[in-house]
Design a protein around this nucleic acid. Structure first.
Length: 231
DNA sequence: AAAGTACGCAACCGCCGTATA
DNA sequence: TTATACGGCGGTTGCGTACTT
């Protein structure tokens, strides 16, 4: 699909679809100078593109390791599971799918998966029984009554799934430390200070910090494999 | 065959965090 | 400490294509 190129009046910057010539200029520049310093590209080459536009074009289209074509069932399943865990953190999700870009995953989610999941949700509303509480050493209050803790910040990750819609959740709470098994993922070994919050918010969603999930994901190279195996 | 509508996706926009002067 | 530039991210737009009427 090719968009008609158009020219912005702002500083002669070009906008719209990229041409093959522009792609070649950008590829040559990155090959010779590496990624980064995107704003210098328009000064050092004939490209009349903003640095942002160059960066986006490279990351989403020109990068050599980009995987093209339809998403496989495994990839689709992984996206769904990661989205339950991470919400709209497309860059984090893309980090677990080699060759896929955040933009591609975001588009796929918005155009295909969201609809598909909505249809499935309408079809079956039985997940409530799938919440399994194990090894509780104290009573876990009703999730629906929990409120967002005072320690929470705007950087907290709010998992984009209500307790009612999360499947196969094992929630374990221990005296002295907090352990959470979510979607088969064990957070037990993580230092307690990394658990900014382990609770549910007023809208019935559990909260985790970006720091926790970012470091955890970085450590768990086999996450994709495990999640796929899980399905 | 033509017009209208829905869909997919590349690209843009605005915001935010970080680095630097 | 403040201002500015830049990079990164998620949300949104708009164009081309496919499908429907």
């Amino acid at each position: 699909m090719v968009k008609t190129p158009c020219t912005s009046s702002m500083e002669g910057r070009k906008k719209g679809a990229w041409t093959a010539e522009e792609d070649q200029i950008l590829k040559d520049h990155v090959r010779n100078h590496g990624e980064g310093k995107w704003n210098t590209i328009s000064r050092k080459t004939d490209l009349k593109r903003s640095g942002k536009s160059c960066r986006l074009r490279w990351l989403n289209y020109l990068r050599p390791d980009i995987k093209r074509g339809n998403f496989s069932e495994d990839e689709e399943d992984l996206i769904i599971r990661l989205h339950k865990l991470l919400g709209n953190r497309w860059c984090l999700i893309a980090g677990r799918l080699p060759g896929r870009t955040d933009n591609e995953i975001k588009n796929y989610w918005n155009t295909t998966l969201r609809k598909k999941l909505a249809e499935e949700e309408n079809y079956s509303k039985q997940s409530k029984e799938n919440i399994i509480l194990i090894n509780s050493t104290e009573t876990i209050p009703s999730c629906s009554k929990e409120t967002k803790p005072a320690t929470t910040t705007n950087n907290d990750l709010q998992i984009d799934a209500s307790w009612d819609s999360v499947e196969n959740v094992n929630y374990k709470q221990q005296i002295g430390s907090t352990s959470v098994f979510l979607q088969g993922i064990d957070f037990t070994d993580y230092e307690e200070d990394k658990f900014l919050t382990v609770a549910s918010s007023s809208d019935q969603t559990p909260l985790f910090s970006d720091k926790l999930l970012g470091s955890w994901l970085a450590d768990q190279d086999n996450l994709s494999f495990e999640l796929v195996q899980d399905s």
